[in-house]
Design a protein around this nucleic acid. Structure first.
Lengths: 220, 220
DNA sequence: CCTCCATCTTGACGATGACAAGTTAGAAAC
DNA sequence: GTTTCTAACTTGTCATCGTCAAGATGGAGG
């Protein structure tokens, strides 16, 4: 159902004009959604609260996002884009190809711990429209960083029957990092309340990943 | 409208002493909750639907569980107990200590794929009362299987500053297995609709874990 | 037989997501 | 400049939810 054609030449005035027509409600709603997620977690999210924060009526969001899932999908896609950036940034801090693979994982966990609610949302199948194009592209990209960094470290000679997307060694790397990030965010690896907690957890992350990398040669 | 049928001739086996009006509402509600979770997923769960399935009014559950979180905590604890059992069972199918560690992981993933909603619930911090004694014991037990199996395979000589619960190698094992299970359940590793899908995924699981185990010597 | 009280019911409240129908404003057409 | 058109937004409504309060019920011990 193609309900709305976006008007590309919208932003006439510097946006912050309080008017009947908000000007940039879609963006304001995404911002509000991120704030609500941060303050109340995934399960505390409500569409109406987002509308309130954006200063519009409870039914206004429907004109920009089909429903709550539509808005959350946008937030999740944005999260994946940031995750990709975090992986790349952490990777750049290392020089040796194998250290760079480790760095990618560090960036992954760092993102999860700094955006816990968003990270959890990103992997909540039921809250997201997985046919959304931006979401698909963004989530793929985050995984692609692992693949390309892995290839830089170990080459492209995947075992028979395996390609870039199903190579056991790449999957193992992703599963390890994702599992660690998931457990960390859920508080299963210790408290995550203070910045000292986070720092301690990140140091432990490095220890674990180094122990993994040390033996993490490709299988072939 | 009122289709509720009393059960004057209910099963009289005095397994539980608590046979009042319903028989054993607490158990019936837990059963109903598991069914609802299976059919509708974690986000589709409602307390009232559980009450409906158990044939009682919407407020009846409050007399056995403080609130929805109370019931879900019970279901989650039960899930951890089953997870522990699944780990042990899969472990017993292997003889070599290092194969047994691999088997534990296989059991973990198998449980996740056969009880996807329950598995996801078990790790949803916000839906669970983490001070519940049974929950704490059950969740600890599931992790303990990893530790004890790891020790069987590699001994107890943990690095300085690390004990059983924080050894990087054990954590690495758990994170890998948990991450893989999480991704599998969320459908990120391929479809999980048919039994053939599951079988294929379990075969892939073994491939990945074998590639990990092969290089997964303890770090010391 | 009778009383007690845990168990369960009924009813109500505020909140939510979604939908329907009405209102407004601003750009395009005249 | 005026009119028209329509996307953007509002108000109102509905079914459903979790929780609470108060009343009804019936089994067990006296």
């Amino acid at each position: 159902m193609d309900l709305k054609k976006k008007r590309p030449l919208k932003r006439k005035t510097p946006a912050r004009v309080k008017a009947y027509h908000h000007g940039d409600l879609a963006v304001a709603l995404v911002d509000a959604a991120e704030t609500v997620l941060t303050e109340r977690g995934v399960e505390g999210f409500t569409l109406r609260e987002c509308a309130r924060r954006a200063g519009v009526s409870h039914a206004a969001p429907a004109h920009h996002f089909k429903d709550a899932k539509g808005l959350l999908t946008e937030v999740a896609a944005l999260g994946y884009e940031r995750l990709t950036e975090a992986e790349r940034k952490a990777r750049e801090e290392e020089a040796d190809p194998k250290d760079r693979l480790l760095g990618t994982g560090i960036g992954y966990v760092r993102f999860a711990l700094s955006h816990p609610a968003q990270f959890q949302l990103m992997f909540q199948r039921s809250l997201i429209d997985r046919t959304n194009a931006r979401f698909i592209a963004a989530s793929r990209a985050a995984f692609q960083v692992f693949i390309e960094t892995y290839i830089e470290a170990f080459g492209t000679n995947f075992p028979a029957g395996m390609d870039r997307d199903t190579d056991p060694s790449v999957m193992r790397e992703w599963a390890l990092v994702h599992g660690f990030a998931t457990l960390a965010v859920q508080g299963q690896l210790g408290p995550t309340d203070t910045t000292a907690d986070i720092a301690k957890l990140m140091a432990f992350t490095r220890t674990v990943f180094e122990s993994a990398r040390k033996y993490g040669q490709p299988l072939r």
